[in-house]
Amino acid sequence: MSKLSTRHLLGIKDITEEDIQLIFQTADNFKDVLNRPIKKVPSLRDITVANVFFENSTRTRLSFELAEKRLSADVVNFSSSSSSVKKGETLLDTVNNILAMKVDMVVMRHSSPGAPHFLSKHVKANIINAGDGTHEHPTQALLDAFSIREKLGDVAGKKVAIMGDILHSRVALSNIFCLKKLGAEVMVCGPITLIPKFIGELGVKVEYDVKKALEWCDVANVLRIQLERQQIKYFPSLREYSIYYGINKQLLDTLNKEIVIMHPGPINRGVELNSDVADSDHSIILGQVENGVAIRMAVLYLLAGVKEG
């Protein structure tokens, strides 16, 4: 028997390396299930999961919904654009109303950092953070590390560069926590305005030259410029960003080694990543998406599997 050290998955910061390994081992089995002709198992048949999304999402919501359905859970979806949130209801009221309808787990995305943590203190259901503002996105970090493990055999000792808009990225922060816990070396690279000032204190290297970063790393995890979170100008123009920080085949050809290219999506083609890289053999971007379902199944399974006190 094996269980996670937590009832909720709020962030990678709060979980242990053993938790991560347990999630990976369970995800291995679910990945096998997903490659069978019948991709469904009945484990969560008496569980109802609410996907509560206060912020837009395609991949994550779809991936969670598929994971829930592959585990035979009942699923209800909620998005803030079509709900009473617009009429002035508070977060806690909204969620308590959903829970009053006998929901066991809540998968939540919210634009405010800490929203799922707040919720976990006030409601009984298991909470899974599907992204809280610029804070954490734990399942993305897990699937990224799982994809590195699958591609390179192990995460420990590998050199991973996270490139782009580090300042506004919850993927970057969760990835840093996750990769460090698994024993990888981590570097962040981007324009100086998009690198948080004290990020070095998390034990990561900081580099401003994209070529040097690529020469150093085994894996480059390229992030999107999050224009929707940028209230001020952090760089002169997208065109200039893509000239200095965009990754294209020409640049990769100048390296004397092969590196793995990852991207959490959505890609802005021609800005941070050119099509000749995104669609190349170096890229494991679609593999990441595939692994996302297996990782989310593992998280749901492990959190749901504990007897209610």
């Binding site: 094996s2 369970t26 969560l44 599997g305 504990v306 007897k307 209610e308």
Partner: peptide, 11 residues
């Protein structure tokens, strides 16, 4: 499932 203290590890 959900009736034990911890889920069983799959093989």
């Amino acid at each position: 499932f959900r009736r034990r203290d911890a889920p069983i590890a799959p093989h």
